[in-house]
Computed example of a mutant assay.
Amino acid sequence: MTQPFRLYPFATSPDLQLTGSIARAGTNFAIAYQLQGDIDKLVMPPAKDHPSRRDRLWEHTCFEFFLASPKAKPYWEFNLSPSGDWNAYHLTDYRQNLRQEERINTLSFVMAQFPLEAAPSAGQTYHLSLDLDLTPLIAPHQPLAVGISAVVETPSGITYWALTHPEPQPDFHRRDSFTLRL
Protein backbone atom coordinates (compact mmCIF):
# COMPACT_ATOMS: atom_id res chain seq x y z
CA MET A 1 0.00 0.00 0.00
CA THR A 2 1.31 3.45 -0.94
CA GLN A 3 1.16 6.22 1.66
CA PRO A 4 1.42 9.83 0.52
CA PHE A 5 3.25 12.39 2.65
CA ARG A 6 3.79 16.12 2.82
CA LEU A 7 6.78 17.80 4.45
CA TYR A 8 6.49 21.15 6.22
CA PRO A 9 9.20 23.79 6.60
CA PHE A 10 10.48 24.49 10.10
CA ALA A 11 10.20 28.24 9.72
CA THR A 12 9.67 30.58 6.81
CA SER A 13 10.68 29.06 3.53
CA PRO A 14 10.85 29.75 -0.15
CA ASP A 15 7.62 29.21 -2.09
CA LEU A 16 8.00 25.42 -2.38
CA GLN A 17 5.99 22.27 -1.86
CA LEU A 18 7.61 19.02 -0.80
CA THR A 19 5.46 15.91 -1.10
CA GLY A 20 5.92 12.26 -1.92
CA SER A 21 4.98 8.70 -1.12
CA ILE A 22 6.29 5.58 0.58
CA ALA A 23 5.39 1.94 0.08
CA ARG A 24 6.50 -1.39 1.43
CA ALA A 25 6.07 -4.99 0.32
CA GLY A 26 7.91 -7.37 2.66
CA THR A 27 11.49 -6.10 2.76
CA ASN A 28 11.09 -3.94 -0.36
CA PHE A 29 10.80 -0.25 0.53
CA ALA A 30 10.08 2.54 -1.94
CA ILE A 31 10.19 6.29 -1.38
CA ALA A 32 9.58 9.13 -3.81
CA TYR A 33 9.99 12.87 -3.19
CA GLN A 34 8.57 15.69 -5.30
CA LEU A 35 9.91 19.18 -4.72
CA GLN A 36 7.85 21.78 -6.58
CA GLY A 37 8.56 25.46 -7.11
CA ASP A 38 11.29 27.63 -8.54
CA ILE A 39 13.97 24.93 -8.40
CA ASP A 40 16.43 27.06 -10.39
CA LYS A 41 16.67 29.45 -7.44
CA LEU A 42 17.71 26.66 -5.04
CA VAL A 43 21.25 25.54 -4.34
CA MET A 44 21.26 22.00 -5.72
CA PRO A 45 24.46 19.93 -5.81
CA PRO A 46 25.12 19.08 -9.47
CA ALA A 47 24.65 15.47 -10.56
CA LYS A 48 27.89 13.47 -10.59
CA ASP A 49 28.96 10.93 -13.19
CA HIS A 50 30.23 8.64 -10.44
CA PRO A 51 28.27 9.22 -7.22
CA SER A 52 29.47 7.54 -4.04
CA ARG A 53 28.94 7.16 -0.31
CA ARG A 54 29.70 10.51 1.37
CA ASP A 55 29.37 12.00 4.84
CA ARG A 56 27.79 15.31 5.81
CA LEU A 57 25.36 15.43 2.89
CA TRP A 58 22.86 17.20 5.17
CA GLU A 59 24.98 20.39 4.97
CA HIS A 60 23.44 21.05 1.54
CA THR A 61 20.22 20.08 -0.24
CA CYS A 62 19.58 16.49 0.81
CA PHE A 63 16.57 14.19 1.06
CA GLU A 64 16.48 12.02 4.18
CA PHE A 65 14.45 9.26 5.74
CA PHE A 66 14.67 7.35 8.99
CA LEU A 67 13.54 3.78 9.70
CA ALA A 68 13.04 2.09 13.06
CA SER A 69 11.19 -0.73 14.71
CA PRO A 70 8.49 1.15 16.68
CA LYS A 71 9.50 -0.32 20.07
CA ALA A 72 13.29 -0.53 19.66
CA LYS A 73 15.88 2.18 20.26
CA PRO A 74 18.16 1.55 17.23
CA TYR A 75 17.31 3.20 13.93
CA TRP A 76 18.70 3.95 10.49
CA GLU A 77 19.25 7.26 8.71
CA PHE A 78 19.44 7.46 4.90
CA ASN A 79 20.73 10.54 3.03
CA LEU A 80 20.18 11.09 -0.70
CA SER A 81 21.83 14.06 -2.43
CA PRO A 82 20.78 15.50 -5.81
CA SER A 83 24.44 14.89 -6.76
CA GLY A 84 23.73 11.14 -6.59
CA ASP A 85 25.92 10.79 -3.50
CA TRP A 86 24.34 8.91 -0.62
CA ASN A 87 24.85 7.41 2.81
CA ALA A 88 23.15 5.01 5.22
CA TYR A 89 23.82 5.12 8.95
CA HIS A 90 22.90 3.00 11.94
CA LEU A 91 22.36 4.59 15.36
CA THR A 92 21.88 2.67 18.61
CA ASP A 93 19.63 5.28 20.24
CA TYR A 94 18.72 8.96 19.84
CA ARG A 95 21.79 10.48 18.10
CA GLN A 96 24.02 7.81 19.67
CA ASN A 97 26.86 5.86 18.04
CA LEU A 98 26.36 7.06 14.48
CA ARG A 99 28.17 4.71 12.11
CA GLN A 100 27.88 3.86 8.46
CA GLU A 101 25.58 0.92 7.85
CA GLU A 102 27.98 -1.43 6.10
CA ARG A 103 25.22 -3.92 5.19
CA ILE A 104 24.05 -1.31 2.67
CA ASN A 105 26.83 -0.87 0.12
CA THR A 106 25.01 1.10 -2.55
CA LEU A 107 21.92 3.28 -2.90
CA SER A 108 20.92 3.80 -6.48
CA PHE A 109 18.13 6.30 -6.98
CA VAL A 110 16.49 8.12 -9.86
CA MET A 111 16.42 11.91 -10.18
CA ALA A 112 14.65 14.09 -12.72
CA GLN A 113 13.65 17.74 -13.10
CA PHE A 114 10.92 18.98 -15.42
CA PRO A 115 8.49 21.92 -15.81
CA LEU A 116 5.25 21.77 -13.87
CA GLU A 117 2.72 20.37 -16.32
CA ALA A 118 -0.25 22.31 -14.99
CA ALA A 119 1.54 25.67 -14.98
CA PRO A 120 5.02 25.63 -16.56
CA SER A 121 5.55 29.30 -15.68
CA ALA A 122 5.07 28.44 -11.97
CA GLY A 123 8.33 26.52 -11.74
CA GLN A 124 9.62 23.00 -11.93
CA THR A 125 9.25 19.67 -10.21
CA TYR A 126 12.32 17.87 -8.93
CA HIS A 127 11.67 14.16 -8.50
CA LEU A 128 13.81 11.70 -6.57
CA SER A 129 12.85 8.05 -6.06
CA LEU A 130 14.51 5.06 -4.44
CA ASP A 131 13.63 1.37 -4.27
CA LEU A 132 15.51 -0.35 -1.47
CA ASP A 133 15.77 -3.98 -0.41
CA LEU A 134 15.79 -3.94 3.40
CA THR A 135 16.65 -7.65 3.68
CA PRO A 136 20.04 -6.94 5.33
CA LEU A 137 18.31 -4.84 8.02
CA ILE A 138 14.85 -6.16 8.88
CA ALA A 139 12.60 -9.19 8.77
CA PRO A 140 9.84 -9.17 6.09
CA HIS A 141 6.97 -8.53 8.53
CA GLN A 142 8.75 -6.32 11.06
CA PRO A 143 6.71 -3.13 11.58
CA LEU A 144 8.49 0.10 10.74
CA ALA A 145 8.20 3.65 12.01
CA VAL A 146 9.28 6.09 9.31
CA GLY A 147 10.49 9.67 9.57
CA ILE A 148 10.88 11.69 6.37
CA SER A 149 12.70 14.98 6.02
CA ALA A 150 14.77 17.17 3.74
CA VAL A 151 17.29 19.94 3.90
CA VAL A 152 16.79 22.48 1.12
CA GLU A 153 19.49 25.07 0.53
CA THR A 154 18.59 28.48 -0.82
CA PRO A 155 20.95 31.38 -1.58
CA SER A 156 20.01 32.83 1.82
CA GLY A 157 20.53 29.64 3.85
CA ILE A 158 19.23 26.20 4.78
CA THR A 159 15.56 25.35 5.25
CA TYR A 160 14.49 22.25 7.19
CA TRP A 161 11.50 20.17 6.12
CA ALA A 162 9.85 17.27 7.97
CA LEU A 163 6.55 15.48 8.52
CA THR A 164 6.32 17.34 11.83
CA HIS A 165 8.51 19.58 13.98
CA PRO A 166 7.75 18.65 17.61
CA GLU A 167 10.48 20.83 19.18
CA PRO A 168 11.48 24.51 19.06
CA GLN A 169 14.51 23.54 16.94
CA PRO A 170 14.53 21.29 13.85
CA ASP A 171 15.54 17.76 14.85
CA PHE A 172 14.91 14.95 12.38
CA HIS A 173 16.17 12.28 14.83
CA ARG A 174 13.34 12.64 17.36
CA ARG A 175 11.31 9.46 17.44
CA ASP A 176 8.06 11.40 17.81
CA SER A 177 8.71 12.69 14.28
CA PHE A 178 8.74 9.11 12.86
CA THR A 179 5.01 9.40 12.32
CA LEU A 180 4.40 7.06 9.39
CA ARG A 181 3.89 3.33 9.97
CA LEU A 182 4.52 0.48 7.57
Score class of each variant (00 low, 15 high):
94 Y>P: 08
109 F>P: 08
94 Y>F: 13
112 A>K: 13
83 S>K: 13
88 A>H: 00
90 H>Q: 14
88 A>S: 09
86 W>H: 05
93 D>A: 11
83 S>A: 14
83 S>D: 11
92 T>L: 12
81 S>W: 02
101 E>A: 15
101 E>M: 03
105 N>C: 09
83 S>R: 06
113 Q>L: 06
112 A>C: 06
118 A>L: 05
103 R>M: 02
115 P>S: 03
120 P>C: 13
87 N>S: 15
104 I>P: 06
102 E>W: 03
115 P>G: 09
118 A>Q: 14
116 L>I: 09
112 A>D: 14
95 R>K: 04
116 L>Y: 09
107 L>Q: 02
93 D>S: 10
84 G>S: 06
88 A>T: 02
121 S>Y: 04
91 L>I: 02
95 R>C: 09
105 N>L: 00
100 Q>W: 12
124 Q>A: 10
83 S>Q: 14
122 A>V: 04
105 N>E: 04
116 L>K: 10
125 T>K: 00
113 Q>W: 01
82 P>D: 10
109 F>I: 02
105 N>M: 00
123 G>L: 13
99 R>G: 04
99 R>L: 10
119 A>W: 11
118 A>V: 13
106 T>N: 13
83 S>T: 15
111 M>S: 15
89 Y>V: 10
90 H>F: 08
95 R>Q: 07
86 W>M: 13
96 Q>S: 11
91 L>Q: 01
96 Q>P: 01
113 Q>M: 03
118 A>S: 14
117 E>C: 00
119 A>N: 15
82 P>I: 13
122 A>C: 08
116 L>E: 08
107 L>G: 14
110 V>D: 11
95 R>D: 03
112 A>N: 12
109 F>D: 00
98 L>G: 09
110 V>A: 12
89 Y>S: 05
94 Y>S: 10
108 S>T: 02
120 P>T: 05
95 R>E: 09
93 D>G: 01
107 L>S: 07
102 E>C: 05
126 Y>C: 11
114 F>H: 12
120 P>G: 07
98 L>A: 05
85 D>T: 15
98 L>C: 04
97 N>L: 06
97 N>M: 03
111 M>G: 07
103 R>N: 13
117 E>T: 13
118 A>N: 15
88 A>M: 02
106 T>C: 15
94 Y>M: 01
88 A>F: 00
82 P>V: 04
99 R>I: 03
112 A>P: 08
92 T>H: 14
99 R>M: 00
114 F>P: 00
116 L>C: 00
126 Y>H: 07
121 S>A: 15
97 N>S: 02
93 D>K: 04
120 P>N: 10
100 Q>V: 11
96 Q>Y: 10
124 Q>F: 13
115 P>C: 11
105 N>Q: 04
82 P>A: 04
86 W>R: 08
